[in-house]
Simulated scan of single mutants.
Amino acid sequence: MTKNTLCVLGAGSWGTALAILLAKNGHEVVLWGRNKEKIRAMYEAGENSFFLPGIPFPKTLTVSSNLSQAVLQSDELLLVVPSHAFRDTLVQIHCIKPDLQRLSWATKGLEPDTHQLLHTVVDEVFEQSLQQAVISGPTFAAEVAKGLPTALTVAANDQAYAQTLAELLGNATLRPYVSHDIIGLEIGGAAKNVMAIAAGIADGLGYGANTRSALITRGLHEISQLSLKLGAEQQTIMGLSGLGDLLLTCTDDQSRNRRMGLAVGRGQNIEQAEIEIGQVVEGVQAAKQIYSLAQDLGIEMPIVEQVYQVLYQNLAPQKAVQNLLMREHKSE
Protein backbone atom coordinates (compact mmCIF):
# COMPACT_ATOMS: atom_id res chain seq x y z
CA MET A 1 0.00 0.00 0.00
CA THR A 2 1.25 3.51 -0.84
CA LYS A 3 1.90 5.53 2.30
CA ASN A 4 0.13 8.89 2.45
CA THR A 5 0.26 11.90 4.72
CA LEU A 6 -3.27 12.53 5.91
CA CYS A 7 -4.72 15.39 7.90
CA VAL A 8 -7.79 14.76 10.05
CA LEU A 9 -9.35 18.08 11.01
CA GLY A 10 -11.28 17.86 14.25
CA ALA A 11 -9.95 16.21 17.42
CA GLY A 12 -13.24 15.07 18.91
CA SER A 13 -13.98 11.41 19.47
CA TRP A 14 -14.85 10.58 15.85
CA GLY A 15 -11.99 12.54 14.32
CA THR A 16 -9.56 10.95 16.76
CA ALA A 17 -10.90 7.46 16.03
CA LEU A 18 -10.47 7.95 12.28
CA ALA A 19 -6.96 9.34 12.79
CA ILE A 20 -6.03 6.28 14.89
CA LEU A 21 -7.51 3.96 12.25
CA LEU A 22 -5.59 5.60 9.41
CA ALA A 23 -2.34 5.60 11.39
CA LYS A 24 -2.77 1.91 12.23
CA ASN A 25 -3.15 1.34 8.48
CA GLY A 26 0.41 2.57 8.02
CA HIS A 27 -0.13 6.20 7.03
CA GLU A 28 1.42 9.33 8.45
CA VAL A 29 -1.46 11.18 10.11
CA VAL A 30 -1.77 14.67 11.53
CA LEU A 31 -4.73 15.18 13.86
CA TRP A 32 -5.59 18.89 14.04
CA GLY A 33 -7.62 20.61 16.73
CA ARG A 34 -8.20 24.30 17.38
CA ASN A 35 -7.84 24.10 21.17
CA LYS A 36 -4.10 24.49 21.84
CA GLU A 37 -4.30 23.38 25.47
CA LYS A 38 -6.14 20.18 24.61
CA ILE A 39 -3.76 19.43 21.74
CA ARG A 40 -0.80 19.91 24.07
CA ALA A 41 -2.38 17.57 26.61
CA MET A 42 -2.93 14.94 23.88
CA TYR A 43 0.69 15.26 22.80
CA GLU A 44 1.96 14.78 26.34
CA ALA A 45 -0.39 11.88 27.12
CA GLY A 46 -0.04 10.12 23.77
CA GLU A 47 -3.81 9.71 23.67
CA ASN A 48 -7.04 11.71 23.57
CA SER A 49 -7.82 11.50 27.28
CA PHE A 50 -10.81 13.81 26.85
CA PHE A 51 -12.84 11.59 24.51
CA LEU A 52 -11.05 8.23 24.04
CA PRO A 53 -9.10 7.60 27.24
CA GLY A 54 -6.92 4.50 27.37
CA ILE A 55 -6.52 4.19 23.58
CA PRO A 56 -2.90 5.12 22.73
CA PHE A 57 -1.93 6.95 19.57
CA PRO A 58 0.05 4.91 17.02
CA LYS A 59 3.61 6.13 16.40
CA THR A 60 2.66 7.58 13.00
CA LEU A 61 -0.03 9.82 14.50
CA THR A 62 0.95 13.36 15.49
CA VAL A 63 -1.23 16.17 16.80
CA SER A 64 -1.18 19.85 15.90
CA SER A 65 -3.04 23.11 16.50
CA ASN A 66 -1.30 24.78 13.53
CA LEU A 67 -3.88 24.61 10.74
CA SER A 68 -1.67 25.96 7.94
CA GLN A 69 1.12 23.54 8.67
CA ALA A 70 -1.24 20.58 9.01
CA VAL A 71 -3.02 21.33 5.72
CA LEU A 72 0.05 22.11 3.63
CA GLN A 73 1.98 18.99 4.63
CA SER A 74 -0.87 16.59 3.84
CA ASP A 75 -1.92 14.69 0.70
CA GLU A 76 -5.50 14.17 1.92
CA LEU A 77 -7.80 16.26 4.10
CA LEU A 78 -10.60 14.67 6.13
CA LEU A 79 -12.94 17.10 7.89
CA VAL A 80 -14.51 15.84 11.13
CA VAL A 81 -15.41 19.13 12.80
CA PRO A 82 -18.94 19.74 14.17
CA SER A 83 -21.42 20.95 11.56
CA HIS A 84 -21.58 24.43 13.10
CA ALA A 85 -17.82 24.84 12.50
CA PHE A 86 -17.85 23.30 9.03
CA ARG A 87 -18.06 26.45 6.90
CA ASP A 88 -15.57 28.41 8.99
CA THR A 89 -13.02 25.59 8.75
CA LEU A 90 -13.57 25.36 4.99
CA VAL A 91 -12.98 29.09 4.59
CA GLN A 92 -9.70 28.79 6.49
CA ILE A 93 -8.62 25.83 4.35
CA HIS A 94 -9.48 27.77 1.20
CA CYS A 95 -7.27 30.64 2.33
CA ILE A 96 -4.39 28.24 2.99
CA LYS A 97 -4.82 26.04 -0.07
CA PRO A 98 -7.10 27.70 -2.67
CA ASP A 99 -6.11 25.18 -5.36
CA LEU A 100 -7.33 22.20 -3.33
CA GLN A 101 -8.40 19.38 -5.64
CA ARG A 102 -10.27 16.99 -3.35
CA LEU A 103 -11.82 16.91 0.10
CA SER A 104 -13.61 14.38 2.27
CA TRP A 105 -15.62 14.78 5.46
CA ALA A 106 -17.19 12.64 8.17
CA THR A 107 -19.16 15.48 9.76
CA LYS A 108 -22.82 14.62 10.33
CA GLY A 109 -25.41 17.36 10.25
CA LEU A 110 -26.66 20.31 8.23
CA GLU A 111 -25.36 23.85 8.32
CA PRO A 112 -27.04 25.88 11.10
CA ASP A 113 -29.30 28.73 10.04
CA THR A 114 -29.26 27.89 6.32
CA HIS A 115 -30.05 24.14 6.83
CA GLN A 116 -27.93 23.45 3.74
CA LEU A 117 -26.43 20.05 3.05
CA LEU A 118 -22.69 20.16 3.64
CA HIS A 119 -21.69 19.43 0.04
CA THR A 120 -23.45 22.62 -1.02
CA VAL A 121 -21.39 24.54 1.54
CA VAL A 122 -18.25 23.04 -0.02
CA ASP A 123 -19.47 24.16 -3.45
CA GLU A 124 -19.98 27.71 -2.18
CA VAL A 125 -16.59 28.04 -0.51
CA PHE A 126 -14.57 26.35 -3.25
CA GLU A 127 -15.79 27.76 -6.53
CA GLN A 128 -13.78 25.29 -8.58
CA SER A 129 -15.06 21.74 -9.02
CA LEU A 130 -13.70 19.52 -6.26
CA GLN A 131 -13.65 15.78 -5.89
CA GLN A 132 -15.85 15.40 -2.81
CA ALA A 133 -16.56 12.46 -0.54
CA VAL A 134 -18.63 11.76 2.57
CA ILE A 135 -17.91 9.01 5.10
CA SER A 136 -20.85 7.74 7.14
CA GLY A 137 -22.38 4.66 8.67
CA PRO A 138 -23.09 2.88 11.96
CA THR A 139 -19.85 3.75 13.76
CA PHE A 140 -19.20 4.49 17.40
CA ALA A 141 -15.81 6.15 17.71
CA ALA A 142 -14.50 4.04 20.59
CA GLU A 143 -15.25 0.78 18.79
CA VAL A 144 -13.48 1.95 15.63
CA ALA A 145 -10.48 3.14 17.64
CA LYS A 146 -10.29 -0.22 19.44
CA GLY A 147 -10.39 -2.09 16.13
CA LEU A 148 -13.74 -3.81 16.65
CA PRO A 149 -15.40 -5.07 13.43
CA THR A 150 -17.18 -2.21 11.64
CA ALA A 151 -18.62 -1.37 8.22
CA LEU A 152 -19.27 2.07 6.75
CA THR A 153 -19.95 3.79 3.42
CA VAL A 154 -17.87 6.22 1.37
CA ALA A 155 -19.90 8.25 -1.14
CA ALA A 156 -18.16 10.50 -3.67
CA ASN A 157 -18.86 12.46 -6.82
CA ASP A 158 -15.94 10.59 -8.38
CA GLN A 159 -15.89 6.82 -7.99
CA ALA A 160 -12.11 6.58 -8.27
CA TYR A 161 -11.87 8.94 -5.29
CA ALA A 162 -14.38 6.86 -3.33
CA GLN A 163 -12.29 3.79 -4.02
CA THR A 164 -9.10 5.57 -2.96
CA LEU A 165 -10.63 6.53 0.38
CA ALA A 166 -12.01 3.02 0.86
CA GLU A 167 -8.50 1.63 0.41
CA LEU A 168 -7.08 4.14 2.89
CA LEU A 169 -9.70 3.24 5.52
CA GLY A 170 -10.14 -0.48 4.98
CA ASN A 171 -8.36 -3.15 7.00
CA ALA A 172 -9.05 -6.50 8.64
CA THR A 173 -11.60 -4.97 11.04
CA LEU A 174 -13.14 -2.15 9.00
CA ARG A 175 -14.97 -2.80 5.75
CA PRO A 176 -15.85 0.24 3.60
CA TYR A 177 -18.47 0.18 0.84
CA VAL A 178 -18.50 2.77 -1.95
CA SER A 179 -21.40 4.79 -3.31
CA HIS A 180 -22.14 7.87 -5.39
CA ASP A 181 -25.11 8.99 -3.28
CA ILE A 182 -23.64 11.91 -1.30
CA ILE A 183 -27.09 13.34 -0.54
CA GLY A 184 -28.33 10.05 0.88
CA LEU A 185 -25.38 9.81 3.26
CA GLU A 186 -25.71 13.41 4.37
CA ILE A 187 -29.44 13.20 5.12
CA GLY A 188 -29.13 9.83 6.83
CA GLY A 189 -26.27 11.05 9.01
CA ALA A 190 -28.14 14.16 10.11
CA ALA A 191 -31.70 12.88 10.50
CA LYS A 192 -30.87 9.75 12.46
CA ASN A 193 -29.60 11.93 15.31
CA VAL A 194 -33.04 13.50 15.69
CA MET A 195 -34.65 10.06 15.76
CA ALA A 196 -32.16 8.97 18.42
CA ILE A 197 -33.26 11.87 20.62
CA ALA A 198 -36.87 10.74 20.10
CA ALA A 199 -36.02 7.15 21.04
CA GLY A 200 -34.11 8.36 24.09
CA ILE A 201 -37.02 10.53 25.22
CA ALA A 202 -39.39 7.56 24.98
CA ASP A 203 -37.04 5.33 26.94
CA GLY A 204 -36.45 8.09 29.47
CA LEU A 205 -40.21 8.19 30.00
CA GLY A 206 -40.17 4.43 30.55
CA TYR A 207 -42.29 3.58 27.51
CA GLY A 208 -40.43 0.40 26.59
CA ALA A 209 -39.40 -1.60 23.56
CA ASN A 210 -42.70 -1.37 21.67
CA THR A 211 -42.50 2.42 21.57
CA ARG A 212 -38.82 2.41 20.59
CA SER A 213 -39.43 -0.04 17.76
CA ALA A 214 -42.31 2.03 16.41
CA LEU A 215 -40.26 5.24 16.55
CA ILE A 216 -37.35 3.67 14.69
CA THR A 217 -39.60 2.24 11.99
CA ARG A 218 -41.61 5.40 11.45
CA GLY A 219 -38.45 7.44 11.79
CA LEU A 220 -36.96 5.51 8.90
CA HIS A 221 -40.06 6.37 6.87
CA GLU A 222 -39.60 10.07 7.59
CA ILE A 223 -35.91 9.93 6.66
CA SER A 224 -36.86 8.14 3.46
CA GLN A 225 -39.45 10.79 2.54
CA LEU A 226 -36.96 13.62 2.99
CA SER A 227 -34.06 11.82 1.32
CA LEU A 228 -36.00 10.87 -1.80
CA LYS A 229 -37.39 14.38 -2.12
CA LEU A 230 -33.83 15.72 -2.18
CA GLY A 231 -32.66 13.21 -4.76
CA ALA A 232 -31.20 10.38 -2.69
CA GLU A 233 -31.66 6.72 -3.54
CA GLN A 234 -33.79 4.16 -1.69
CA GLN A 235 -30.87 1.73 -1.61
CA THR A 236 -28.85 4.21 0.45
CA ILE A 237 -31.69 4.73 2.92
CA MET A 238 -31.89 0.98 3.53
CA GLY A 239 -28.11 0.64 3.78
CA LEU A 240 -25.40 1.21 6.36
CA SER A 241 -25.63 5.01 6.38
CA GLY A 242 -29.43 4.97 6.59
CA LEU A 243 -31.08 2.10 8.44
CA GLY A 244 -27.78 0.86 9.88
CA ASP A 245 -26.83 4.17 11.46
CA LEU A 246 -30.41 4.75 12.64
CA LEU A 247 -30.53 1.43 14.49
CA LEU A 248 -27.16 1.99 16.11
CA THR A 249 -27.88 5.52 17.28
CA CYS A 250 -31.36 4.80 18.61
CA THR A 251 -30.55 1.67 20.58
CA ASP A 252 -27.16 2.04 22.27
CA ASP A 253 -26.26 4.42 25.09
CA GLN A 254 -22.89 5.19 23.50
CA SER A 255 -24.96 7.56 21.34
CA ARG A 256 -24.79 11.16 22.59
CA ASN A 257 -28.12 11.89 20.91
CA ARG A 258 -29.87 8.98 22.59
CA ARG A 259 -28.39 10.08 25.95
CA MET A 260 -29.71 13.58 25.34
CA GLY A 261 -33.18 12.13 24.77
CA LEU A 262 -32.92 9.99 27.89
CA ALA A 263 -32.02 13.04 29.95
CA VAL A 264 -34.88 15.11 28.53
CA GLY A 265 -37.33 12.26 29.06
CA ARG A 266 -36.23 12.07 32.70
CA GLY A 267 -36.86 15.76 33.25
CA GLN A 268 -33.46 17.37 32.67
CA ASN A 269 -33.11 20.44 30.49
CA ILE A 270 -30.90 20.58 27.40
CA GLU A 271 -28.17 22.64 29.05
CA GLN A 272 -27.82 20.21 31.97
CA ALA A 273 -27.70 17.24 29.62
CA GLU A 274 -25.07 18.80 27.34
CA ILE A 275 -22.81 19.51 30.32
CA GLU A 276 -23.09 15.91 31.49
CA ILE A 277 -22.50 14.48 28.00
CA GLY A 278 -19.50 16.77 27.51
CA GLN A 279 -19.56 16.79 23.70
CA VAL A 280 -21.53 18.40 20.90
CA VAL A 281 -24.93 16.72 20.49
CA GLU A 282 -25.55 17.20 16.77
CA GLY A 283 -29.20 16.14 16.95
CA VAL A 284 -30.21 19.22 18.95
CA GLN A 285 -29.29 21.57 16.10
CA ALA A 286 -30.36 19.01 13.49
CA ALA A 287 -33.89 18.94 14.90
CA LYS A 288 -34.29 22.64 14.14
CA GLN A 289 -32.59 22.38 10.75
CA ILE A 290 -34.47 19.34 9.50
CA TYR A 291 -37.80 20.63 10.80
CA SER A 292 -37.25 23.88 8.85
CA LEU A 293 -36.10 21.98 5.77
CA ALA A 294 -39.17 19.72 5.86
CA GLN A 295 -41.42 22.77 6.24
CA ASP A 296 -39.77 24.41 3.22
CA LEU A 297 -40.22 21.25 1.14
CA GLY A 298 -43.78 20.55 2.31
CA ILE A 299 -42.86 17.17 3.79
CA GLU A 300 -44.65 15.81 6.84
CA MET A 301 -42.16 14.61 9.49
CA PRO A 302 -44.22 14.24 12.69
CA ILE A 303 -41.46 12.71 14.84
CA VAL A 304 -39.03 15.46 13.88
CA GLU A 305 -41.75 18.05 14.56
CA GLN A 306 -42.41 16.71 18.07
CA VAL A 307 -38.71 16.56 18.92
CA TYR A 308 -38.35 20.13 17.69
CA GLN A 309 -41.25 21.27 19.88
CA VAL A 310 -39.84 19.49 22.94
CA LEU A 311 -36.38 21.01 22.46
CA TYR A 312 -37.35 24.50 21.34
CA GLN A 313 -40.96 25.19 22.35
CA ASN A 314 -41.07 23.65 25.84
CA LEU A 315 -43.53 20.92 24.87
CA ALA A 316 -43.73 18.27 27.60
CA PRO A 317 -42.22 14.97 26.39
CA GLN A 318 -45.34 13.06 27.49
CA LYS A 319 -47.49 15.39 25.40
CA ALA A 320 -45.22 14.86 22.38
CA VAL A 321 -45.79 11.10 22.54
CA GLN A 322 -49.54 11.64 22.93
CA ASN A 323 -49.51 13.91 19.88
CA LEU A 324 -47.90 11.16 17.80
CA LEU A 325 -50.32 8.50 19.01
CA MET A 326 -53.40 10.68 18.47
CA ARG A 327 -52.63 11.53 14.85
CA GLU A 328 -55.24 10.58 12.25
CA HIS A 329 -55.25 6.90 11.41
CA LYS A 330 -53.75 6.08 8.00
CA SER A 331 -52.36 3.27 5.90
CA GLU A 332 -48.78 2.28 6.53
Rank of each mutant, 00 (worst) to 15 (best):
L315P: 07
S331V: 06
Q92W: 00
I93L: 10
F51K: 00
H119Q: 12
M326T: 12
K59M: 07
Q279M: 14
T120I: 06
G109H: 05
I270T: 14
L174S: 01
A232W: 02
E124S: 13
N193A: 05
E167Q: 15
F126W: 02
V321E: 05
Q235P: 02
R175I: 02
G54E: 07
I197C: 08
Q92H: 13
V264P: 03
A191Q: 10
A263H: 09
L22D: 05
A85C: 12
R266I: 08
L100Q: 11
G298T: 01
E328G: 01
L118M: 11
Y207S: 05
I270E: 11
L247Y: 13
E37L: 15
E222D: 13
A198S: 13
K59D: 12
Q313H: 15
N66P: 02
I183P: 02
A142M: 05
V154M: 02
D252I: 06
I96N: 03
Q235E: 14
I299R: 09
S13T: 04
L169K: 00
F50Y: 11
S74L: 03
R256V: 06
E274I: 11
E276S: 14
Q268H: 08
S255A: 13
L220S: 00
G189I: 01
A145Y: 06
G265H: 05
I55G: 01
A166R: 00
E167L: 12
I290D: 03
T217E: 02
G188N: 03
Y43M: 12
G242W: 02
E47M: 13
G184D: 08
V154K: 01
V81R: 08
G188D: 03
K330A: 15
A145H: 02
P176A: 09
D181Y: 04
V280S: 06
S104G: 15
F86N: 08
Q132W: 00
A145E: 06
G12N: 07
V8G: 01
Y177T: 11
G206W: 09
F86R: 07
A232L: 07
R212N: 12
L90A: 09
L78Q: 14
S49P: 01
E186V: 09
V321Q: 09
A196R: 07
Q313M: 11
H84T: 04
I135N: 00
G278F: 12
H115P: 08
M42G: 04
R259E: 01
Q272N: 08
E124M: 10
V310S: 03
F50A: 09
G54L: 08
A196T: 05
A45F: 06
V280G: 10
T114Y: 05
D252A: 09
E305N: 12
L6I: 15
W105I: 11
V307G: 13
D113L: 13
S331M: 11
P53D: 15
K59S: 15
Q159F: 08
L293Y: 03
E76S: 02
P58F: 10
T5Y: 14
E143R: 02
K108Q: 10
A23C: 11
I223K: 00
L72V: 11
N157D: 10
L246M: 04
D203S: 12
L230I: 07
L168E: 05
D203M: 13
Q92E: 15
Y207F: 14
P138W: 03
D113A: 11
E111S: 04
S179R: 02
L169D: 05
